[in-house]
Nucleic acid binder design. Structure first.
Lengths: 366, 366
DNA sequence: AGGAACGTTGACAGCGCTACCAGCACGGAC
DNA sequence: GTCCGTGCTGGTAGCGCTGTCAACGTTCCT
């Protein structure tokens, strides 16, 4: 406390330059493009900066350069486990870059998304990560006009704004249903909550698979706009059971619902998978640990966030990816809850999440 | 598209001022302190800004005013359910303020926290939210010297940097153990993972309660530094059982572990609560829905984040709270997993998370 | 009636940094 | 020897906004 030269007590670039015996602009270059300096000056500036504990003023930098080093991220939910994994991937990838993450929550509202997008764009972000492909026309126009790289995450679709990384929820749902067919199930119910576009596409995949097999019936589908929860899984399953007591399997649009169904079955003394098979979606950690272990569709959430942020940063720095649209695929992880109707569904006493058998691999269409 | 006057295509404050027929500085004041303007000018500036679609340039504002409108948030984990609730509270509270949230993940490392703190402070944030009370000496010094309001969240302790909001993990753990005592349990195990300071204090509370009752034994405690998970809960419980087969209850440092214990008991055909009672911590949503329903210590996570951010914003705006240290307390939510050793632990067929009986209310010491 | 007090407004001068372009030294091509 | 390119460096001029202070008109008090 007392090493300062300027009234505000902060070290400025000018001080660093002075100590290093170079002009401010040279010092500035050191921080943005060190290769442009001669080795001698480079080391001089570096040690001067270190000695003074210089930290650049981002506001001044942003004002002068007319762009920020902020990556805007728009996600629909902060509560959902799914997004916390994606977010972790994003933060991890941004950590050692010079970009900082600005996160906003659209709460599953595309109008809110539009508003936030406008806000973000006004600050000229270095890049943008948005969730999904269902934006308002207005949002879409803003994205198209934006002069920064953009990555859409969570799913893939036909008309990317720029880059895109995700997987086909439709295909993933079809694979889940196909797996249940393969185990001999026919009357397969669907349970879904918070019918956001991706859950809707999972439903579409389920419907198409069922129709292809000539097994679709509307009363096998129970959905609600209510946010998802374990408790809700039990309640929706109860509804479904009332409508169709002869059901032999349930495909749950997410793992929380699946866990709720598991508990509800336990409450009703319904044997899994003998009487009812269960398949979840996302393959959260607990699925491998439940009793019986629960089959789920594994999605690469962390990787999605991580790759999205890496791709974005690369694109910002001028290294555009070869493939702007990346399909990260999915895997049906078969576990006890949907294994073929054998009798030995009681596992050994110790090991949790025993053997996981992969059923379908990365996506691709149909 | 074409409405712009300046080269960059952006509307500046000067344009708004011109259209409104006032000086730029008056227009500036409109956005920061509208009450200072006469009604006439206020409406003129307002309509001019709206007409031009003016959005202030935050970088310029930050540079000129020497402070940002950023609230820095340091949390130890992005994965943990607990923090997603807290975060949601923070984001909700900040949404309609002019402040934006800058989030960083310390990954439970106080060294990383120190580094991030230095980074944050260099940008002169408007306020800071930090997790817990265990900072490095250096961090503590930086916080003490910071010229912005600071809220410590998640727990309360004796020497607040500034404001503080949380609850006593120690007391909460004691209350959980007291509840188990009240149900007639004596050999109570402790299962803990990722022993961060708060989990450590829960352990301390457990130990003190057990010692007070003359029941403490070191072999009843199983902990690990590994990040928590449901699967880990099962594994740690298995350890515990091997050490002390006569155990009649387990206090889990969080709900994921408790769920893991539940599943492990099911695998081993151990009856809950008849043979082993379970108490979790945090009262996540699924606890009320499990079979049997799981007792837990409810913590006010959303409220903690929300109040912290509100308090912080108020403090930034000069309205300091009456009570800078807020104890949000906790509640032991008694459910089937720890109910007194009755025989009717099989619930009715339908309703999930049936009756919750509150046991201990807001904290206070001992 | 005179003056103080207040509410309202504007001029000026930067905040700390970078874009732009000019200038210098050096070396190779002609 | 002249010309030009290349690599490095520096000067100038802002980026868009706000802090400070002075000045104005009005009201209220004595």
């Amino acid at each position: 406390m007392g090493r300062n030269r300027t009234k505000s007590g902060k070290i400025r670039l000018a001080e660093v330059a002075e100590l290093a015996g170079v002009s401010p602009i040279t010092a500035s270059r050191f921080f943005r493009n060190p290769e442009a300096l001669s080795l001698a000056k480079r080391t001089r500036v570096e040690s001067a900066a270190r000695e003074l504990g210089y930290v650049p003023n981002l506001a001044a930098r942003a004002l002068a350069s007319q762009r920020t080093e902020v990556i805007g991220v728009l996600i629909p939910s902060l509560t959902n486990n799914v997004f916390s994994d994606v977010l972790r991937g994003i933060y991890d990838a941004s950590e050692n870059s010079r970009y900082s993450i600005q996160l906003s929550n659209t709460r599953y509202s595309i109008l809110q998304e539009e508003k936030l997008l406008r806000l973000f764009l006004a600050q000229k972000p270095a890049g943008l990560i948005v969730t999904g492909i269902d934006q308002t026309t207005e949002s879409r126009a803003m994205l198209d006009a934006a002069d920064c790289p953009i990555v859409q995450i969570m799913e893939i679709g036909p008309h990317p704004v720029d880059m895109m990384i995700g997987f086909s929820h439709y295909d993933a749902a079809r694979a889940a249903v196909a797996h249940l067919f393969a185990q001999g199930h026919r009357k397969i119910g669907f349970v879904g909550a918070r019918m956001d576009p991706r859950v809707q596409r999972r439903l579409d995949g389920y419907v198409s698979a069922m129709k292809d097999a000539g097994l679709f019936e509307q009363r096998l589908v129970v959905t609600t706009a209510t946010p998802t929860s374990v408790t809700l899984g039990g309640a929706l399953f109860t509804d479904l059971l009332a409508r169709e007591p002869g059901m032999d399997a349930v495909f749950c649009a997410n793992d929380d619902l699946a866990l709720g169904v598991l508990f509800e079955c336990r409450r009703r003394e319904i044997a899994i998978p003998e009487q009812i098979a269960i398949v979840g979606f996302n393959d959260l950690e607990f699925m491998a640990s439940a009793v019986p272990t629960l089959t789920s569709v594994r999605t690469n959430r962390y990787e999605m966030g991580n790759t999205a942020a890496s791709m974005l940063i690369d694109a910002i720095d001028g290294r555009r990816p070869e493939h702007p649209v990346l399909d990260l695929g999915f895997k049906v992880i078969e576990r006890q809850s949907s294994s073929a109707r054998r009798s030995d569904n009681r596992p050994a006493a110790s090991g949790t999440g025993a053997a996981n058998k992969m059923v379908a691999l990365p996506s691709g269409h149909d």
